[in-house]
């Protein structure tokens, strides 16, 4: 057993393993790329599963969560007494802080005609806590719900909220249609 043969044997072994490795990695990559389901995705909330636990507001990796409330006006009852806007048992039906449910005052209330009021989410103020969503789902039409806002979301490989979501309400949707909106014909860009 000479030194040279020893080394060349090692070299041969290494070359073989290298070949197997290249084939393996290439094959794995090729298989995954060639698969039909391969496509870019975005995280989104299934509003029907959401229980408004409040973790969206705190568990996003961003300083202010990418999850915010959206409002399908077409489904809204324009109630004077909006259970998404007002505290339970409001003292007065006005925008005083003592009557508002939203902790950041992110819902604007606008009189349209008696007895209808329009409610708009002020996106910059919304932190995605879901308090209004709970109110709207429990007693209203469910026209307010939480969605991941994709101009803010950085599409983490594993969404930190999805991991902790107690209702397992997070889905990965195709990047071409990254919202799961309520109401017919909604979803303009």
């Amino acid at each position: 057993m000479s030194k040279e043969s020893d080394l060349s044997r090692r070299e041969l072994l290494k070359t073989t393993i290298r070949g197997i490795g290249l084939l393996g990695f290439g094959g794995t990559g090729g298989y995954l790329v060639g698969r039909e389901s391969q496509s870019e995705t975005r995280w989104q909330i299934d509003a029907d599963k959401c229980i408004q636990c409040g973790r969206c507001a705190t568990d996003c990796v961003l300083e202010v969560s990418a999850v915010k409330c959206v409002h399908t006006h077409g489904m809204c009852g324009y109630c004077k007494l909006c259970t998404a806007y007002f505290e339970p048992e409001p003292v007065n039906l006005d925008e005083g802080a003592e009557n508002q449910l939203c902790p950041t005052g992110a819902i604007a209330r606008k009189f349209i005609e008696e007895p209808y009021y329009e409610y708009n989410i002020l996106r910059d103020l919304c932190v995605g806590c879901g308090k209004c969503v709970k109110g709207c789902n429990m007693f209203g039409n469910g026209s307010m719900y939480l969605q991941v806002n994709h101009d803010l979301c950085i599409n983490c490989n594993m969404c930190a909220i999805a991991v902790t979501c107690p209702a397992q309400a997070f889905r990965q949707l195709p990047a071409s249609s990254p919202y799961k909106l309520r109401g017919k014909g909604e979803g303009g860009k």
Partner: peptide, 17 residues
Amino acid sequence: PPDFTDHKVPHLVVPGP
């Protein structure tokens, strides 16, 4: 949802990715 005579119900606009 009410039928408004002279108020247009806003369409939900979502920000693109």
